[in-house]
Nucleic acid binder design. Structure first.
Length: 835
RNA sequence: GCGAAAGUGGCGGAAUUGGCAGACGCGCUGGACUUAGGAUCCAGUGGGAUUAUCUCGUAGGGGUUCGAGUCCCCUCUUUCGCACCA
């Protein structure tokens, strides 16, 4: 046990923390309505998966959001800070399997346990708005949203190649395949063509690239999203097959190299290749190669060091600009799901094509000569990818390649064999999951009518309860025929329910809006309420969600706007990506055995200590290192605050009734007056503008040190006591966002009747920031040589004179001649001297 | 490989607009009080030296400037993201 048992000298955190949590709850200070006559402020930290245990990451994350929420309350805002649970998903299913229970039961137990832990941290959460994604009153609207997306043409089914684990009978995401084996059962992973449901997020790609309203998002996140969407400008070109039956469409960013195309590269998955395979059952070379490549782990195949391989298809297509015959190769280095899934290969000017052509002896053609005019194909060790002068390109010879791009594209458009376009790296969002613990896709498959949406009056499609999780290797829903056997809502014939459930990212892509109206059973939310609360003014969460969740939520947000459900273009006006809490330099994890249990810290030192430590350890967006000694430091600090006020209560209460004229204040207390006002100024700047709570807390600590330095407060004059009482009184106010319980208790003991969030922000007056004397530093040639104290309004010439007269300066200047003297007002005198 | 961010005492971190580097906290050293310390209080705490002062010092090297942790160039290291994207 790292800490000894309690001590009589400690402040009674275990009494005051529950006391204030109860008072806040009873007074409903965290339950704002929509019409309060005050401006709204919506603070949201990403909702957690309900593991049942609060960990340091949660404690840190929600300490930040609560600090912001309470600050905004002090500022007079009507603040909403809701909480809920991202409770669907595989972890919940696995947790239930481990505990030999049902995910609904374990999830509800975990939620109850976590709620108690959140409350013991003293977070100002509006529990009236609690949502949990696995409850039917929430997921019904996810199904409704699915239907709306479907009706607007933004949902489709597509067959595509997926990582498939035979023994688990499920699709695996790319990151769930390790060295070609299933991460869970270590069985072989093959590629299987499966029908899956997709959301057409790419329809919104262009708008998602518009970051103009995200001015308060970290640059890093915007860069990652931009990178992820990956817009690329280029030209679409059709290469007709030799027999004229159809054409291969390619996307290229280098139309200037089109005369240099010597072969066409297709992946085995390409529809044309699949057609040829069917037509030529005896072409073993082709069949073997395609089977081999398709079954390769996608990640392995995509790795840069994978050798390029291919087979010649025996077929040709024609270059639409010069009619050249172009070999068609089936290769392993072209991606089916980027661009058109086909590449016009220009070996002289693309490194990948270059390597492939050299390996298989495919001809090359130089069409861009460098400006030195010294490129000779047989001598080239790599492709020439830079701009240059066009050659071997009929009408464009002699032109600069960059400039010719547009002209070539225009010619292609004129000939009707292509067009200028763009493509995205972003893929449509595959939302199908073959798992039980997720939101059922509200669809019925009818042999006659095809895909039929479940009618609104039959929503929600409820998850069946009588499912033995973990008993079957495949989707447990497939083992519940009484659930999936249904009549078609259209024709009444026997039909089958969709057994795929939705990706849990669907659930979390709109929850922020549900919080605005969480008990609505007629609609996802009332547009008026959504428009009142949205956008989220401050969103807080981990950087790991930079692309996935934050992109999905932006997409669904825009879709809900287009439906007229709300007016808001961007759901999250301001984003803070908080850092991780590490221990011994690594992320806390059970396997590393470096997990710290926050509930132990709360029991032993109180939530205020934990919160203060977490916020003081580092700026909110940086990782912070856990330190047992650091926790002790925070605890000591709060104890010092407690003692300062508690041991002088009567004196301070008397002092708070007094006021002081400046001229009656003694010199040491004038210093304290300055500390009060300059600290409040810095605290406000750190809290409101810089959002750097570690330095705000440091400023309070520094000010506390000044207060503690005043001995025998009871013996002070009335004027001095007034200053002293003010100096002590602002400490609870400045502590409130970070350590609200102790702040509230001391505030009450000082005789204030209102709660701290009603007290308003502490203020400062500029007139008390004016000092009688200010310190000037004297430098000679950039080196510190002396200091002097002078009146702030000193004449610069007089200042220079006095600076030269400083003993040490005078000595240092002996034998030197002064060349120049620079005065930086309020700061320093810089003397330039030479021999 | 490409892109981004970062590198400051024994440690976490400050230094906001180019102006006293190391605020604040931890740890450590010495002292006071004490039956005791894991409490509290006082003093000290970047390195070096010839210590009332001088000197070196913000990953390393160069530059701009009266003055650089901060701006510019090069190098190294770390972290993160992307990675055959046609």
């Amino acid at each position: 046990m790292p800490w000894p048992e309690g001590d009589k000298m400690e402040y009674p955190f275990s009494k005051i923390e529950p006391k204030w949590q109860k008072i806040w709850r009873e007074k409903q200070i965290f339950n704002p309505g929509e019409r309060t006559g005050r401006p709204k402020y919506y603070v949201l930290a990403m909702f957690p998966y309900p593991s049942g245990v609060l960990h340091c990451g949660h404690a840190s994350n929600y300490s930040i959001s609560d600090a912001i929420a309470r600050l905004k309350m002090m500022e007079g805002y009507s603040v909403m800070q809701p909480m809920g649970y991202d409770s669907f998903g595989m972890p919940a299913e696995n947790f239930a399997i481990q505990h030999n229970s049902h995910p609904r039961i374990t999830t509800e137990e975990n939620i109850a346990a976590m709620r108690g832990q959140f409350d013991s941290m003293g977070f100002g959460l509006d529990w009236d708005r609690e949502v949990s994604t696995c409850r039917p009153d929430y997921y019904v609207w996810g199904q409704y949203l699915f239907k709306k997306l479907y009706e607007k043409g933004l949902v489709y089914r597509k067959k595509s190649w997926q990582n498939w684990c035979e023994s688990c009978q499920t699709v695996l995401a790319n990151e769930q395949v390790e060295n070609g084996l299933c991460w869970r059962c270590h069985g072989e992973v093959s590629q299987k063509e499966l029908e899956q449901w997709y959301f057409r997020i790419t329809d919104y790609a262009e708008e998602l690239l518009d970051f103009s309203k995200l001015t308060d998002w970290p640059e890093r996140v915007l860069a990652m999203q931009k990178n992820w969407i990956g817009k690329s400008e280029g030209t679409l070109i059709d290469f007709p097959l030799e027999d004229g039956s159809e054409a291969i469409s390619v996307f290229t960013t280098r139309p200037d190299t089109v005369y240099g195309v010597t072969f066409m590269a297709l992946p085995p998955e390409h529809p044309l290749v699949q057609k040829w395979l069917a037509e030529e059952p005896d072409n073993h070379a082709l069949h073997d190669f395609c089977r081999k490549v398709i079954n390769e782990d996608k990640i392995l195949r995509g790795a840069e060091d994978t050798t390029k391989e291919g087979v010649f298809s025996g077929r040709y297509c024609l270059n639409p600009l010069n009619g050249n015959k172009v070999q068609i190769w089936i290769t392993n280095y072209v991606l089916m799901d980027y661009g058109t899934g086909a590449v016009m290969a220009v070996p002289a000017h693309d490194q990948r094509d270059f390597e492939f052509a050299r390996k298989y002896g495919i001809p090359m053609l130089l069409v861009i000569q460098n400006f030195e005019q010294n490129l000779v194909l047989p001598e080239m060790a790599q492709a020439y990818v830079e701009p240059g002068i066009m050659v071997n390109s009929a009408p464009f010879d002699g032109r600069e390649s960059e400039a010719a791009k547009a002209a070539i594209s225009a010619l292609i458009e004129e000939k009707g064999c292509g067009r200028v376009t763009h493509t995205y790296r972003l893929r449509d969002w595959g939302i199908s999951r073959q798992r039980y613990w997720g939101n059922p896709i509200p669809v019925i498959h009818c042999p006659r009518c095809g895909v039929v949406l479940v009618p609104d009056e039959d929503l929600p499609v409820r998850l069946p309860e009588n499912v033995q999780v973990g008993r079957t290797t495949s989707n447990p829903l497939l083992s519940v025929p009484e659930w999936y056997r249904v009549k078609c809502p259209q024709c009444g014939e026997d039909a089958k329910r969709e057994t795929d459930t939705m990706d849990t990212f669907v659930d979390s892509s709109w929850y922020y809006a549900r919080y605005a109206d969480p008990r609505n059973d007629q609609a996802p939310f009332d547009p008026a309420k959504a428009n009142y609360w949205l956008p989220v003014d401050q969103y807080i969460g981990g950087i790991e969600h930079a692309v996935m969740h934050l992109l999905y939520a932006r997409f669904i947000g825009k879709f809900m706007r287009d439906l007229g459900w709300c007016d808001c273009d961007e759901p999250f006006a301001r984003l803070l990506t908080q850092g991780m809490v590490t221990k011994d330099g690594a992320k806390m994890s059970k396997s590393k055995g470096n997990v710290v249990d926050p509930t132990y810290i709360i029991d032993r030192f109180g939530a205020d200590t934990l919160r203060t430590f977490l916020l003081f350890a580092s700026p909110p967006d940086k990782d912070s290192e856990w330190s047992d000694d650091g926790v002790m430091g925070a605890f000591r600090f709060l104890n010092r605050v407690w003692r300062l006020i508690e041991s002088n209560l009567d004196t301070l209460k008397r002092g708070l009734q007094l006021s002081a004229d400046l001229e009656d204040i003694s010199a040491p207390l004038r210093g304290l007056l300055y500390s009060s006002h300059s600290t409040v100024k810095k605290w406000l700047d750190d809290c409101q503008h810089r959002r750097q709570y570690n330095t705000a807390i440091a400023a309070v600590m520094e000010h506390l040190n000044h207060c503690v330095a005043v001995k025998d407060p009871a013996g002070l004059s009335d004027a001095d006591l007034a200053v002293y009482a003010e100096a002590c009184g602002i400490i609870p106010q400045m502590l409130y966002p970070f350590a609200p319980h102790i702040a509230e208790e001391l505030w009450q003991r000082l005789g204030f009747n209102e709660l701290l969030h009603e007290s308003g922000l502490p203020g400062y007056e500029e007139k008390y920031l004016v000092r009688d004397l200010i310190t000037y530093v004297v430098q000679i040639n950039g080196k510190l040589r002396g200091k002097l104290e002078v009146a702030p309004d000193i004449d610069p010439e007089e200042l220079k004179k006095q600076a030269m007269a400083v003993e040490n300066v005078k000595r240092s200047l002996e034998g030197w001649s002064v060349k120049k003297v620079i005065v930086v007002p309020g700061k320093m005198v810089s003397i330039v001297a030479g021999k």
